[in-house]
């Protein structure tokens, strides 16, 4: 597969598309959004035994969101053709999808040599405002975003690993989410239709 480096021009085009589709999206009050998400996380913390379980739960909730949200993205963002490469896919996730659903744009950086791993860097996370985490725990507050990315890419047959690298809530200077390409999935028939 030909790998094309996105030029600054295409970044500009993607950013313009992100702004355009963000303008069309119905908005909700940011404080209301933060409060409901915060309440959800607090409830999970009460229901689960340890923080790891909460993180996993957030991830799986994100995956369920992602498998559905991808169609909203495709329907409203003017994405007519599938992306040509994993690199382009990540650019579209960061520039267009992040803007569309979270109102912030994520920069795509830190590509490794064979273009199979990158980070989405976004200084402002709309979920993080007014939040304090209990110290000393490996709490991944925004794990739901990682899950949503994973679920969405699964629907377009990319198997990826998505994980939090930096979070301003834990004292880092910015928010960073890593995406690692694992494999291309195949559309397969269900076991019940296969010849035994």
């Amino acid at each position: 597969m030909a790998q094309q480096t996105p030029t600054s021009n295409s970044v500009k085009a993607l950013r313009a598309r992100g702004d355009q589709v963000w303008a069309r999206m119905p908005k909700c009050n940011a404080e209301f959004f933060r409060l409901t998400y915060g309440a959800l996380v607090v409830q999970l913390v009460e229901d689960c035994d340890d923080i790891k379980e909460v993180n996993d739960k957030l991830l799986s909730m994100g995956v369920s969101i992602g498998t559905r949200i991808i169609d909203e993205f495709l329907a409203k963002s003017n994405q007519r053709e599938p992306c040509k490469s994993f690199e382009e896919t990540c650019e579209v996730v960061g520039r267009v999808a992040f803007k569309m659903f979270l109102g912030v744009e994520a920069d795509v950086r830190n590509w490794n040599e064979d273009k199979s791993r990158c980070s989405l860097v976004f200084p402002e996370n709309p979920l993080n405002e007014n939040v304090e985490l209990p110290p000393g725990k490996n709490f991944l507050y925004s794990n739901i975003i990682c899950g949503a990315i994973r679920g969405a890419l699964e629907q377009i047959l990319y198997k990826v690993d998505v994980y939090c690298i930096k979070d301003t809530l834990r004292g880092d200077d910015t928010n960073e989410i890593g995406i690692t390409f694992v494999s291309r999935l195949q559309a397969e028939m269900d076991d019940q239709y296969k010849e035994s």
Partner: peptide, 20 residues
């Protein structure tokens, strides 16, 4: 058809009782 797709993403996928 594109408009129907948009309606599908809004009213089917966001319905919690709908199974994919």
């Amino acid at each position: 058809l594109r408009m129907v797709y948009e309606l599908y993403s809004d009213y089917v996928l966001k319905n919690p009782f709908h199974d994919l």
